[in-house]
């Protein structure tokens, strides 16, 4: 089998393929948004004082993390209709991906929240804040800094995991690649093209993630703050010397 640059380039920029890339992007984003919202809810249920809420969250996480996404997806798409719940391909893909993501994100959020120093809770209590105020103004903003790196990794995984939706005939990048490959039996060219597009997407996300992390890290180190560095402060330079 010989490599054909012509076919490769033709696949790479064909509207059919680009359409698949776009589907992969929005599917990842939508599934991630829903999954993270659900996951955050699960995290708070898991930390709740109410036994039944904790058990619901634990059971959910146990099941969704303990079974393969591929199986979950097929069950949602092919088995649920037999129970009277008919879902389209797109709905099934979104539901499976986001419910799966929620189970993982719940743990990420929970560990982020518990990583915030106990003293922060004391200080916000002493300032007269109620639970929602403590969460909103003090705890969650600090947990975010801890949550962003694993969240970024989850999104990176999500971009690639959407390819599983091809088994229920979701028209995303991977399925379009398969179809392209079969069209003229240029298998290598088609899959190399898919690999390139996945790499482009994950690399771009990597850049965004880096900026997000830097943004949330900024208040935590004097070295990161360029404004302060311009006007040296005796105390600050003393501190910098210690570090």
């Amino acid at each position: 089998m010989s490599w054909s640059w012509d076919h490769f380039m033709q696949f790479l920029f064909s509207p059919y393929m680009l359409n698949g890339v776009w589907t992969t992007i929005w599917l990842s984003i939508v599934a991630m948004l829903i999954g993270c919202s659900l996951g955050a809810m699960l995290a708070f249920m898991k930390m709740s004082k109410t036994w039944i809420l904790r058990q619901i969250a634990n059971t959910y996480i146990w099941i969704w993390r303990g079974t393969p996404l591929l199986v979950q997806m097929v069950i949602i798409y092919t088995v649920l209709p037999k129970a009277g719940i008919k879902l389209g391909v797109i709905e099934s893909a979104i539901i499976a991906l986001s419910l799966h993501e929620a189970a993982y994100f719940a743990e990420i959020v929970r560990s982020g929240i518990t990583s915030v120093n106990k003293g922060q809770e004391d200080a916000s209590l002493a300032l007269g804040m109620t639970w929602p105020q403590r969460m909103r103004y003090v705890i969650v903003p600090q947990a975010t800094r801890v949550i962003i790196p694993p969240l970024g990794n989850q999104f990176n995984l999500m971009i690639k995991t959407t390819s599983l939706a091809s088994v229920i005939s979701m028209e995303e990048l991977f399925r379009r690649t398969q179809q392209m490959a079969q069209l003229e039996f240029k298998v290598l060219e088609a899959y190399m093209c898919a690999a390139c597009w996945y790499l482009v997407m994950t690399t771009l996300w990597g850049l965004i993630q880096k900026r997000l992390e830097a943004h949330y890290d900024r208040p935590f180190g004097p070295a990161a703050d360029t404004d302060e560095r311009k006007k040296p402060d005796p105390v600050l330079s003393g501190q910098a010397a210690q570090v």
């Binding site: 003293g119 002493a126 103004y137 208040p219």
Partner: peptide, 12 residues
């Protein structure tokens, strides 16, 4: 008002 041993300022 309360002041703590470990300051507990909000670092963010």
């Amino acid at each position: 008002g309360m002041v703590f041993q470990s300051f507990n300022l909000f670092p963010h």
